[in-house]
Nucleic acid binder design. Structure first.
Lengths: 207, 207
DNA sequence: CGGCCTTTTGACGTCAATCAAAATTTGTGG
DNA sequence: CCACAAATTTTGATTGACGTCAAAAGGCCG
């Protein structure tokens, strides 16, 4: 994608709020590396992560934003960000862009619905397995489709995983411990996960 | 929207499967009246409703469909349906169409994320209140924004509501009974609901 | 009226939440 | 590099909200 002159690049430290659809922040970005989490919060503080964006996803909600989603860097993130105006000009000049945006949003919608099934109908154990599987597929640098194993750093803390899966930290921890006990995964430094046999993990995802 | 010659109109009886994104069914529709439910099912039969489409929503997932969503009529439905080919031709002739499709998909994405919060973080009571509120806003014929009350037929059975909210039929029934006992809603014939004070209902939705 | 399906109600069980505290990791300054 | 503080993760004990199982009540249509 060619960038207009008004774009800028920057790194965001972990946890930094990148943009909130709720208010005046009126920018649009491209995730160059890292993971961005989209969260929604209830008035009493309960939180739910409603999406994760990996490179090279677009980031932002064009055409008005009433949806009160907050985007935060989950890991070190490199963004290429530009004002809404630039996006809209680019879309005029290059209608293909709007098409690609539609395709990405359709993918996001598919993913959101995938997670609705997990949130509504899967057990804690199945949620964790599904989550690890999803991360493995998105993050493992050598993620060929025919790989038997995978190894990756979790982009989220236990608390964030809980917010993603509609669980508590304690339940997340227990389920990960259980998977480790059953040798489905190995965990180093709490963040690095190795899956020797992805099929065995997939078998626990409940699909 | 102008319809190409190859389009057709038909009514679907309740419960009829309209299209499945999984396979060869390759049509695209417009909901003219009624409610269509989008469901996903796990291999052991657990089901989750991942979306409800009200008139005048589009229905269908253009540009390949790997997402195994099934669309079914929840009520009597009038559709205007046409083959994918027609849609793609129409999009070429009228680029505005693709733009409107994008806007609708963005709305659907917002809604999906709204429900992710409910599924992951709300209590059974809050889920029911949120659901009734959503239906009231979409269905009540006289739903002016400044109405104090609302009255409508539920487009879903208790079992379907359960599948939408990630609950069991029994829990749905108990929560509705509870709301009735507290005079937040009145229910006639199990399907018709009257809300005298929408604010009181909204206060229980937990947002 | 009678069978069938949906909804409600009741008794009980269980999975995940809550509460509490220990263990481990991470970060900071000397 | 180590010592200490803070944050994160794990583990344990207990509770509670919702699920499960069972049966009664209510609607719908022949």
């Amino acid at each position: 994608m060619t960038l207009s002159r008004s774009t800028k690049r920057h790194k965001a430290e972990t946890g930094k709020e990148l943009m909130s659809d709720v208010g005046s922040v009126d920018r649009f970005s491209n995730v160059l590396s890292g993971v961005v989490k989209l969260t929604k919060t209830l008035s009493d503080g309960r939180q739910q992560i409603v999406g994760l964006q990996f490179a090279p996803d677009f980031l932002g909600r064009p055409f008005q934003a009433e949806s009160t989603v907050t985007a935060e860097a989950a890991t070190e993130v490199e963004l290429c960000s530009f004002p809404r105006q630039a996006l809209e000009r680019m879309m005029k000049e290059q209608p293909d862009l709007e098409h690609r945006l539609l395709e990405q949003k359709l993918r996001e919608l598919d993913q959101a619905r995938e997670w609705m099934v997990a949130l509504g109908r899967k057990t804690a154990a199945e949620k964790i397995a599904s989550f690890l599987l999803m991360i493995a597929r998105n993050i493992d640098p050598a993620a060929g489709p025919e790989r038997r194993g995978a190894s990756f750093d979790l982009p989220l803390s236990r608390a964030e995983i809980a917010d993603f899966l509609g669980l508590t930290v304690e339940t997340v921890s227990r389920q990960i411990t259980r998977l480790r006990g059953e040798k489905v995964i190995r965990v180093e430094n709490n963040r690095h996960v190795t899956v020797d046999d992805i099929q065995r993990l997939a078998a626990r995802a409940g699909d």
